[in-house]
Simulated assay, not measured.
Amino acid sequence: MLVDSHCHLDFPEFAPELDQIVERARLAGVGRMVTISTRVRKLAQVLAVAEKYPDVFASVGTHPHNAQEELDIDAAALARLSRHPKIVAIGEAGLDYHYDKSPRADQFKGFHEHIKAARETGLPLVIHTREADADTAVILEEEIGKGAFPAVLHCYTGGRELAFKAVELGLYVGFTGIITFKNGEALRDIARDLPADRILVETDAPFLAPIPYRGKRNEPSFVVNTAKVLAETRGVSEAEIARQTTENFFRLFSKVPRVLPDDVRTAG
């Protein structure tokens, strides 16, 4: 079994054929999917997807792009919303200096509130960090010093130093279809060298479709292609990558049940 630890199934790109997309994932051996919140005020849409499918779960949080829109949503609010049985993570939250769609001060505030919520609830924080390695490392080190919390650097595109700092602090690192790209060699080098018990695979669908689907709409079934390249990169079998990343997922996303109702069909 494989897991897509990060996708956005509530996005409009999927609406016309969501049932078929979920079924294709199951047939490809994808046994769990986590659809990730980007705006707390649109959480109902995320939960509608998670509640429809027993193998789909959700997070609650505010993407750094939207931080300025939801400054009133604090750690207490996130913790309260996370009590929903289908919500298994906090986020995604963090820092994005590539687009800077929200002021950095607002991104910082949101990031800290999400960390507090992760620490309070014990749910993993899904961290978005882009072109913000130094500040992300400082915040993580400072906050871990106040008390540990589970987290993953999702869709990792940063440098070697931040990846290994995160692992040193007890965090996980998630890889997308970017590692399949021709220009993804530096990222593959990082993925090759990280500890086996700290890596996850994801799609970030509908974005970042792996080779041979690059440029098309991504979907959870394509996580198989990312896992294949990750296995080749690390010099292990695809079965071993599936076993290890799935075990890592359940260890981190501990609220997700390992056993689902019998009517959910998964291959492998």
Results as ranks from 00 to 15, higher is better:
residue 184 G to R: 03
residue 260 L to A: 11
residue 117 A to K: 13
residue 181 F to A: 12
residue 184 G to N: 10
residue 161 E to S: 11
residue 214 R to S: 14
residue 235 G to Y: 11
residue 29 G to C: 11
residue 140 L to E: 00
residue 195 P to G: 13
residue 61 G to Q: 11
residue 153 L to W: 03
residue 80 R to Y: 14
residue 47 L to T: 10
residue 237 S to L: 14
residue 242 A to M: 10
residue 106 D to Q: 15
residue 61 G to K: 12
residue 207 F to E: 03
residue 55 D to Q: 15
residue 5 S to L: 09
residue 19 D to H: 04
residue 104 R to A: 13
residue 266 T to W: 07
residue 23 E to Q: 09
residue 261 P to R: 12
residue 188 R to H: 04
residue 261 P to E: 04
residue 240 E to A: 15
residue 30 V to Y: 08
residue 17 E to T: 05
residue 191 A to H: 03
residue 267 A to S: 15
residue 28 A to Y: 11
residue 129 T to S: 15
residue 66 N to V: 04
residue 23 E to R: 06
residue 221 S to Y: 09
residue 43 L to W: 04
residue 192 R to C: 01
residue 255 K to F: 10
residue 62 T to Y: 03
residue 39 R to L: 13
residue 249 F to R: 00
residue 73 I to W: 02
residue 141 E to L: 06
residue 264 V to R: 04
residue 265 R to G: 02
residue 154 H to E: 11
residue 44 A to C: 10
residue 261 P to M: 06
residue 140 L to N: 08
residue 105 A to P: 00
residue 157 T to H: 01
residue 187 L to K: 04
residue 154 H to Y: 09
residue 125 L to G: 14
residue 96 D to H: 12
residue 231 A to N: 01
residue 196 A to K: 13
residue 249 F to D: 05
residue 43 L to Q: 04
residue 241 I to T: 15
residue 114 H to V: 11
residue 150 P to R: 09
residue 53 Y to T: 10
residue 21 I to V: 15
residue 24 R to N: 10
residue 84 H to T: 12
residue 62 T to G: 05
residue 112 H to N: 01
residue 45 Q to W: 08
residue 119 R to A: 09
residue 165 K to G: 01
residue 25 A to Q: 03
residue 212 P to K: 14
residue 261 P to T: 00
residue 14 F to D: 10
residue 53 Y to P: 05
residue 39 R to V: 00
residue 218 N to W: 00
residue 93 A to Y: 06
residue 140 L to W: 05
residue 64 P to L: 00
residue 42 K to T: 13
residue 223 V to P: 02
residue 75 A to G: 09
residue 105 A to Q: 15
residue 65 H to W: 09
residue 86 K to G: 10
residue 240 E to W: 15
